[in-house]
Structure formats: C-alpha cells, structure tokens
Simulated scan of single mutants.
Amino acid sequence: MDFPVIKKALFLFCLIPLFTHAQYTDVINSNRPGRAVSAYAVGRNVVQGEMGLLYEQQDNADLNTDSNILGVDFSLRYGLLFETLELNWEGSFITQNVTFTNLGTDERRTDFSRNRLGLKFLIFDPYKNPERSKPNLYSWRANNVFQWKNLIPAVSVYAGATFTLGENPFYVGDPVVAPRAAIATQSRLSPRFVLISNLAYDRIGTDFPELNFAMSITHAFRDPKWSVFLEGQGISSDRYSDVLLRTGVAYLINENFQADFHLGSGFKNSPSRIFTVLGFSYRLDFHKDKLVAISDQKGGKNGKIKKGAAKKKRKKSKKKKKDKLDF
C-alpha cells in the first residue's frame, strides 16, 4: 500500500473549504439500525447517543468451536464547530463464550471488538442548491418517483483511528493506534427511499489491514414513524473475511428518540454467524440556526432583502435621532 499517497489524500481533505451546508433535521438522524453510516452530520451542538444490545451465535467448522456472544454496540456523536463536521466515538464491547468441541474445554473472551474515534466531514451536498430542493407544483409524480438526478449523492469523508487497548484477545499483536479512513455517500432516491454506501480502510499499517464496504437501502412507510432497511456488508482481511446481510425495522418514538431491531447472518462457515440486535437512539438537541439581522444581511442570508431596505432603515434612524435633538 502506498502510504505517502494516503497521507497526501488526507491532507487534501483537510484543505477543502467549509462551504457546504449540512441538512440538520427536526427529527433525529440516526445511523441505526445496521452498520452503514449516513453522509450527514447530526448538526452543530447536537449530542447524540446510539446503542444496541446484541446476541450472536457463532460456530467455526475449521476450528471446531461453538460460541455465543453478548454485547453492546454504541456510538456517541457530536456536531462540532460546523454544521458539516461530526466527532464520533463508536465501538462494540462483547463477551464471547467459546466451547472447543474436540477438546471439551471452554474459554471466555471479553473486550472491544470495535473501538474507533474519528471526524466525519460533509464535502458535497446536492441539496445545498435550493432550486434543486423545490417541489414540482404541477406534478405529484415528479415529486414521488425515481429520477436520475436523485442518484447524485451527498458525500462525506472520515479520518480517525482504531484503538486496541491492553491485551485484547480479538486483536492479538495489533498496535494501540491504527489509522482509519472512509468515504460515505447518501442518495435520496425518492421521498421514501434512501440509499447509503460506505467504503472504509481500517487498521492501516498493521499486519491485518481491513477493507470494508457496506450498502444500505431504507424505506419509510406511509406512517413515517416506521421504516425498514436492507443492508449488505463485505469485509476483506487476512484475519477475517465475509459477507453479512442485515434487515430490520426502526420506529420513531418522538423527534429525539428512536427504537430499532434487526437481525442478520454471514455466508461462511468459518465462522458461521447469526445475530440479533435491539437498539435505541437519543439526542440532546442544542442546535440553533445562525440568524443575521436584516440590516446586516447580504443576498442569500435568511432570504434576500429588498434593494435599499438597509439604506432606508439607516435614514429613518437618523431622522428619529434628529427629531429628538430638535425637541
């Protein structure tokens, strides 16, 4: 792998100007259920926690082992400094009970199977242009069916690190810190369908770098509180490779609280995997839109102001001041 190229790419990402506009929403924008993450940040000054209680049955025909896993998936997201920037700590803390069937012995392993910290930055938003977002007032069909322009995705980049602390039994010999880079895209195919894709390169520079790809499609029902999703995830590494399939539902309890459930499985038998996850997402919304006083506005801020409006306001203010002095 050409690491100077990776360094140059990350440097260029840092130089991208902060000109995009994130889509802060009135309702919670959760990455759950599943593992594919949204291209959008949660919004400036929004604190959001996402958690899942997981159970997995895992059997390995090559190693003659049967195991069950209990654990917690978590993600803590914070809208940092800008609408387009998000700080994210995510991971999975699990306990795996392993039975070696040929030996008749048991072993327990407890630690992080994921532990990452990074920054996600939105570099392109197709809905930044208000003209593109306007509904067609003359055609219901144009507003509710697939159009080719809907394939143009929002794009974000991610830079961070994976941490392996102490004597982690799942990643023996890995360094404490390993770089991670990713790209996330999100397309709104129609008012009810959203397509998300992620490409990530993890544990860069270790003996077992990992390439990860995920694609998820979500459909909202007529009752917008309910949605379903289908997700495929591919993992490629000398340590572990597989294709995972997930499906499940999410329910919006209120504008800041979502519950979800999903199940999934792998396609290999070394190991075979079947898992279920019950999750929740909750946000503390301290987001405030930046408003500009009418007299200080320029075209495009809080909408256009009429030509000469600020000038007229200054003249009116001067006249009032003069009248007071004459009195």
Rank of each mutant, 00 (worst) to 15 (best):
R35L: 09
N129V: 11
F327S: 07
N143A: 12
N168T: 11
T99M: 05
Y78D: 09
V277N: 05
R108K: 09
F112I: 10
Q96Y: 03
K315P: 00
F19S: 12
L85G: 10
E90D: 12
P209C: 13
T276S: 02
R188G: 04
K134L: 14
R283C: 03
F146T: 09
T206M: 02
G91P: 01
I196R: 00
F257G: 01
F208N: 09
T101L: 00
P179A: 07
L137T: 08
N102T: 06
S30T: 15
R109H: 10
K128F: 05
Q48L: 11
V177Q: 08
S216G: 03
N31I: 03
A161E: 05
F163W: 00
S317E: 14
Q96F: 03
G91K: 05
V194K: 04
T206V: 06
Y24T: 12
S270Q: 13
S295G: 09
K8E: 15
E56L: 08
W148L: 15
D238W: 05
R283A: 02
K120R: 15
V176A: 04
G264D: 05
V27S: 13
D174R: 13
R222W: 04
L15F: 05
V37R: 00
P135N: 04
S216L: 02
N144G: 08
K318T: 12
R239E: 11
Y127S: 08
F11T: 12
F82I: 08
N29F: 01
A184Y: 06
I183V: 15
W226A: 13
D59K: 00
F193A: 10
R314V: 06
E167C: 02
A214G: 09
A41P: 00
K290E: 14
L137F: 08
G303Q: 09
A181L: 13
G232Q: 07
K298A: 06
N68C: 03
S75H: 01
V277I: 14
G71D: 03
G118L: 07
R77W: 07
P33G: 02
S317M: 13
T95P: 00
D111K: 04
W148A: 15
S156I: 10
R108L: 01
K321T: 11
A61P: 00
A154P: 01
E255K: 15
R192T: 11
L245V: 14
Y251Q: 11
V72W: 07
F267A: 13
Y251E: 08
V243I: 15
V194P: 02
F229V: 11
N302E: 15
S67T: 01
Y127L: 10
Y40C: 03
Q147C: 01
C14G: 13
